[in-house]
Amino acid sequence: MSQKPLLTTEAAGTACALPDAGPVILAPAEEKRKIRVATCSLAGCFGCHTSFLDIDERILDLLKLIEFDRTPLTDIKHCGPCDVGIIEGGVCNSENVHVLKEFRKNCKVLVAIGACSVNGGVPTVRNNIDLWECFQEVYHYGIGLKNGMIPNDPELPLPFDQVHPIAEVVKVDYFLPGCPPSADAIWKFLTDLLAGREPKLEYETLHYD
């Protein structure tokens, strides 16, 4: 039924167990390869990453099954070939698009996590404000500002006139909404995915706020 990629389609493998999550099918038995996961925050606030860390000691169970590629935790700068890519935040500048495309190219399964990644979220409040006016307000006229200067270092990425969700730029396989999604929602989502099931949230863990 589902045309969405599931993690175990090519794996005949070893089963092990995460608490409350049923059997988890890993890569083929001979290999015992860990599922490689990359994450990043684009136009987001790192709140989704923080919520992910709220899974607390369950992360130890998770680390038996996965290893991290590029994430804010590993400080790896570029995403290499991965099983799962998890993107927080929408796209608000040119760098966001480059990072996003690198993830899409390298990740078998791409997940949009959080309201900003799913529909643009809070940063879209600027979408109907002229970019120049927005900068003036932020750097020149905002309360408490003196001698403000608009940053224009050539190293800075080019800002877009609007913020957009990542699915308007690349194909996204799964969406996990919430601002941020709760640790339990993230745990349920990841354990479903690692078990080769299509992720499904209970009513009370599905939130847009």
């Binding site: 799913v118 809070v122 996204v172 909404p177 601002c179 847009y208």
Partner: peptide
């Protein structure tokens, strides 16, 4: 322009509740 995270109606909103009821993920 529905930004549920800062909307005062969030949690009491019928459009949002309909999205949850129908399993709208994106």
């Amino acid at each position: 322009n529905h930004v549920c995270p800062f909307c005062e109606k969030s949690g009491n909103c019928q459009l949002q509740a309909m999205g949850y009821f129908l399993g709208m993920m994106d």
